[in-house]
Design a protein around this nucleic acid. Structure first.
Lengths: 161, 161
DNA sequence: TTGCTCCTCACGTCACGTGAGGTGGC
DNA sequence: TTGCTCCTCACGTCACGTGAGGTGGC
C-alpha cells in the first residue's frame, strides 16, 4: 500500500510537465497558458516542433504562479504584467549570476543592490494595495461598531413604552 | 474673488448630475456607466424619454464609487458585483426604514441585525484579501532582509583579497 | 449661433472560453 | 487498441473603448 515509484511521471521530481499539469498546479487553464505564450508573456517552450506537446519545468510553474498572484492581488493589466515579468526575468538572471559565484566584490554589490531595488518596487505596490484594503476594513469595522452601539441601546430600552 | 453662486449647476448641492459629471466624480467613463445600466448593475434613471439625458444624484455617485471600489479591491466579476449591489440596495432600504423611525422594537432589532450581517460578510471578504496581501508583503520583506544581510557581509569582507 | 456634452447604434479590443477536427504518447 | 491529453484554427463572450452621425441644453 505504500506509494512506490510507479506514479505518473510529472509527480516525480524533475520530470517535464505538460500544459495540463502546469494549469492544474497554477490554478488556471491550458488555454490561458497558451494565450500568455502567444502574447509573449511566457516564453515559448524552446525548439518545439509544430504540433508537438509543450513541456515545462517546476520553475516555469513557480513563475506562472507568482505572476498570476501579482496580477490578481495588485490588479494590473497584462501590459503591466509584461513589465513585471521582465523584471522577474532580470531578477532570476541576477540570482543565477550570484549563485554561480561572482568574484568581483564591486559586481557582487551591484547585483545585491539591483535585487534590493526590485524588491522595494514590488513592496511599494503591495503596500499601496494594503493601505486601500485597510481603509475599507476600517470603514466596515466602524460601521459594525455603530450598529453594535444601537443594538445595546435597544437592550436598555424599556421592553414596551 | 470669493466664489459666488454662478458656478456650473452640478457643483452646487442637490442639483442633478449628468453622466459625464458622474463619470468624472467616480473616476470612470460614461460608456462604463451606460454599460452597467445596460446589464442591470445600475438602475436606469427612471422615466427617461428615449434619447433624453440621464440624470443622477450624489447618492448615485456614492453607490457607484463604492461598487467600483469593491470590484477592484476584492477582484470580483460583474456577476459577483450584481450580488454585492443587490446587497447594497437591501442595505440602503434597511437604513431608510431605520431613519424613518420604526416604533416596533422587534423590527428595530431585526434591521440592525441584518445590517450587521451585511457588514460582517463584506468584512470577511476584505480580510481574506488583506491576508493574501500580507503574505506577499512578508515575503518581500524577508527577501529584502536577506539581501540586506548579504550587503553587510560584503562590507565586512576585505576590500581586496 | 457656437461649443460642449449628450444620445444611440455598432464595430473593435482585450483576455480569455469553447467547441471542431485531428494527432500523439502512456 | 482504447482513453486521455495534447495540438491548431476559429468563433464566442465579457467588459468595456472608440468612432459615426445626430440631437439637445447653458
Amino acid at each position: 500500500m505504500t506509494e512506490t515509484t510507479d506514479m505518473p511521471a510529472p509527480e516525480r521530481e524533475g520530470a517535464p510537465l505538460k500544459i495540463g499539469d502546469v494549469a492544474k498546479l497554477a490554478g488556471t487553464t491550458p488555454r490561458t497558458i497558451r494565450y500568455y505564450e502567444e502574447i509573449g508573456l511566457l516564453p515559448a517552450s524552446g525548439g518545439r516542433e509544430p504540433g508537438a506537446h509543450r513541456t515545462y519545468s517546476q520553475a516555469d510553474v513557480d513563475r506562472l504562479i507568482e505572476v498570476m498572484r501579482l496580477r490578481t492581488l495588485l490588479g494590473v493589466s497584462l501590459d503591466g504584467l509584461k513589465e513585471l515579468v521582465e523584471a522577474e526575468d532580470n531578477r532570476e538572471a541576477l540570482r543565477r549570476e550570484w549563485h554561480e559565484g561572482v568574484p568581483d566584490p564591486v559586481r557582487r554589490r551591484e547585483i545585491l543592490e539591483s535585487l534590493d531595488e526590485h524588491a522595494e518596487r514590488q513592496l511599494k505596490m503591495v503596500r499601496a494595495r494594503r493601505d486601500e484594503i485597510a481603509v475599507l476594513e476600517t470603514e466596515l469595522l466602524e460601521r459594525r461598531a455603530r450598529i453594535g452601539r444601537r443594538l445595546r441601546e435597544l437592550e436598555d430600552e424599556p421592553a414596551t413604552a
